[in-house]
Design a protein around this nucleic acid. Structure first.
Lengths: 352, 352
DNA sequence: CTGTTAGCGCATTCAC
DNA sequence: GTGAATGCGCTAACAG
């Protein structure tokens, strides 16, 4: 069996209170007793019982992470976990698919008093309602990271609009007068089934899908730049590339750039066009509105011009925000985070 | 404050024992009392206090996930979390960098009695020693997933050797008599620093880096196929592509295929060679030994011939294994999991 | 400055 | 079939 504070107290010939105080670095224990207690504790291999402490303190010192899917979360996770670790908090992670139901397993995180606070990544509106209706006590201890929900406090989003504005502005500066905006809004109902037979993510489209297209068009129009927007549907059909090729062939004298929704979309364009014999940047210019990468250097394709969103930092911010809520009952203001411009060779006239 | 079983007992006019028994579906409570208790519990919005239960049951019903980095874990996470959820267990996640020290934050997971079992992903030998020396009680409740450690039980690895054998065999069948094996063993000391200023992963090379090269060479040699092995160093220098191009140009009459360590390496080859004007599969054949993707369809590059490792399933196996250990004191046999051959257009003579 | 003691919420044993 | 009583390991109020 594991050794308790009581065991230490007996072994060291002191009271259990002294042990608790010594272990937690509190005053009112003489230095010699403190030293002796720590010595014995180490010798006996004492380890706190987190459950007991949590019960007593009415706080689990754990933060829950509710995610729709894991495949975009890695950089967020790193930032979040690092910050929580440093603050002495545990990270409890739970995946839910689509709309979270109260009777589902992932809901235990909020149902069973296991977390002091919550970080919710990539959620849609349904979860907001659920939390507001059923868990009002949690709502001001919840941070919404990259979720469609954006209220006065507790929300962190990438500044989609600002990023698009920056992209259009930079392209205009480089003389581009026509943009082909390409994204990949999959029809969620017809997505193929993953390996394990489970349902694919059906929580609705990420809000950025609409936002980026709209914002690019808006800012391009303001400066008088022409935009052709298209949807590649790479996950359901395979014919997007012909459409893109046709659009590129319409390129007359007007300098044209392909603006991809994100790194993957750009990747797909590059690959598919290469198969068709079109080489970037010789035959066309290309940039991505989002990078979706962990370490900067992990994007092998350093030639890609892109707006990179620092998700590690965003994760750190989210964790700090939830800690402020939990520890100081604060209501930290919501923020939108901009993107970092990374100039690569896939854009002609690289002048900076 | 939150409502306890005692509150329910008072409200329903029964004893607390009855409440506990009713809520946990145990016998020795009359049906009418049971119904009434459940009704009251629902009305009052009762939620279990996980800490109290854990303390009483001497088991937290939580499994810890110790990871070196998050960026390869997504598919593992999905499988693991799903299986643990279904079994009613929580998933506690903690990242550690390089060699885990006892006085470091991530070690709290094992230090503080917060988990019933452990899944360790991508660890090197140092952690094995640590656990054996200091936490003998945890060692037979630990599953090593994709870690360099491979003992009699509790280990799950991709069958590196078998996968390479399969790759060589299939390439031989298709008439390839020369292979260029390419990988990317970065010099870890000179890796650029990530966004956040933190140290990059320095836990040593993943064992597969050595294994794949060796196995490919071994099996090729057995059949009399020539192998040129090279290291691209894409993360530190940029000149790997010239070497690859040179090797490809040496292609005389012998049918040659490029065998990439993983999807990313293949991706890099494809991109860089495209920039040089070399198109796949016209100018060269290409395959990857590992896919590293979440959903099958998420690899936009469906043309890539690859050996795909089902990490979601591996994650499920890992979770099941740790549950068997925790719940039934079992010592499940270690396993090596093979790869699935996915035939794409990047390999000529696709005949199956 | 130190020891005693009372719960935190739950599962379970024991007497009835 | 049921209620009273116990203790898990810990923190903190209280008394000495």
């Amino acid at each position: 069996m594991s050794v308790s504070q009581n065991d230490i107290a007996k072994a060291a010939g002191v009271s259990q209170r002294a042990v608790s105080f010594a272990l937690n670095g509190k005053p009112n224990v003489s230095q010699e007793k403190r030293d002796e207690i720590l010595r014995v504790a180490r010798k006996l291999g004492y380890r706190v019982n987190t459950s007991a402490r949590a019960m007593r303190k009415q706080s689990t010192e754990a933060i829950g992470l509710l995610v729709q899917h894991f495949n975009v979360g890695d950089s967020f996770f790193m930032g979040i976990n690092k910050t929580l670790q440093d603050a002495g908090y545990y990270t409890l992670i739970e995946q839910f698919t689509g709309v979270l139901q109260l009777d589902e397993k992932p809901a235990r995180l909020v149902l069973e008093n296991v977390v002091d606070g919550l970080i919710i990544i990539n959620s849609d509106a349904s979860l907001v309602e659920l939390l507001h209706n059923k868990f009002a006590n949690l709502i001001n201890r919840t941070v919404w990271l990259e979720s469609s929900h954006f209220a006065d406090f507790g929300c962190i989003q990438r500044d989609e609009d600002g990023v698009c504005q920056q992209a259009v502005k930079r392209l205009a500066e480089r003389g581009f007068r026509r943009l082909i905006y390409i994204e990949d809004i999959a029809d969620l109902d017809v997505l193929p089934v993953p390996f394990d037979g489970s349902k694919p993510y059906t929580g609705g489209l990420h809000y950025s899908s609409h936002q980026r297209r709209e914002s690019v068009q808006k800012y391009a129009q303001q400066i008088g730049i022409e935009v052709d927007a298209m949807d590649a549907h790479t996950r359901t059909t395979r014919d997007g590339i012909e459409q893109l090729q046709t659009l590129l062939n319409q390129q007359t004298q007007t300098k044209t750039a392909v603006v991809a929704y994100d790194y993957r979309m750009a990747d797909w364009c590059f690959h598919q066009l290469a198969i068709k014999g079109l080489v970037c940047p010789k035959d066309y210019a290309l940039m991505a509105l989002d990078e979706l990468r962990f370490y900067k250097q992990e994007l092998h394709w350093q030639e890609l011009t892109r707006l990179s969103f620092n998700r590690v930092k965003a994760g750190q911010m989210a964790a700090q925000m939830v800690l402020d809520m939990v520890c100081h009952d604060a209501q930290p203001k919501s923020v939108r985070i901009g993107g970092d411009w990374v100039q690569g060779k896939t854009l002609e006239q690289a002048t900076d």
